[in-house]
Amino acid sequence: MALMAFGVLATLSVISALGVILHKSPVRSALLLVTNFVGLAGLYLLQNAQVLAVFQILVYAGAIMVLFLFVIMLLNLAGDTSPDPLAGQKWVAWLLGVALVGGIGWGMWSVAGLSLPVSPQGIRATAAEQQGIQQVQVIGFDLFTRYVYPFELTSVLLLVGVIGVMTLTRRIPQGGSANDRS
């Protein structure tokens, strides 16, 4: 049952990923990427990571991809039209891709039989689960204790991002603009 669900979701995500990199129209690519993200959210659910699955939908599908679509629509982009100056490059890229997946896949396959030791956090989480403490609460607790510095750093990063975006896209009114050289 789980294996079947995995098969369906894995096929969905691989096909949509292929579509993202092959489709001419950027809008279609973006929508296929949303499909891929939904498939990945399903895979997270299959691994019992409900919080992350919902985050995946909320953050990636609900916010990031809407931003992508917004920019594509705003700029009214068409697909790649101009001829490629280095057409042979593409085949090299695909060859490199095959080599990469071969390498990583071989590495994964070679460790397939081994099993990982349960981490101390894993033992704690399992025990918390046996006491009826929900996954959300354990994750929230970890996020605000052991990961509090990365968490705060992320918020600083987001703030920097917001300010950076505003500086980048601000139109300077009336002449003297660096962007304005007609």
Binding site: F55, I64, S119, P150, T154, L158, G161
Partner: peptide, 23 residues
Amino acid sequence: RGGFDGQIYAMFVMTVAAAEVAV
């Protein structure tokens, strides 16, 4: 490995991705 540390890392990746996409 049990536990949720990988999930927390993934959340950080998402946040950083959001900032990166915006910029």
